[in-house]
Design a protein around this nucleic acid. Sequence first.
DNA 1: ATTCTCACA
DNA 2: TGTGAGCA
Length: 129
Amino acid sequence: MRTAEFERRTGVNRRLLRYYEEQGLLSPGRTSGGYREYEESDVLKVRHIRNLLAAGLSTATIADLLPCMGKDGDDLIADCPELLLDLHRERARIQAAIHELETARTTLDAVIATAPPETERAARALLLP
DNA sequence: ATTCTCACA
DNA sequence: TGTGAGCA
């Protein structure tokens, strides 16, 4: 299928599709006229890409990860030891980010606790409605 | 009619 | 990351 249909099937616009391609996540073939030719399996592939992206993985690690997923079926890693390393590294990165955010929140809570009661109430009034 | 690449008041 | 120009 070509761009227009693929765009509909995936719900992702060409601009982004081309970006994924530049990042090595997708490699559609080309017709003699130079038009991109996508495979049926690419539709599912884009779904995977979007999920992985949402999980915080970089396009680079996703590029390495994709070939390790079932060629046809859903997403389940087969046997890619080298990849598992990157995944754990990503997990550690996320865990670290969580900690940083938690300490940032703690700091803010401390500052907020400093505000006078009436100021606190005024602030909440501005926040809720 | 459609897609492609490239460039940017 | 959108938009238009000039092609094939």
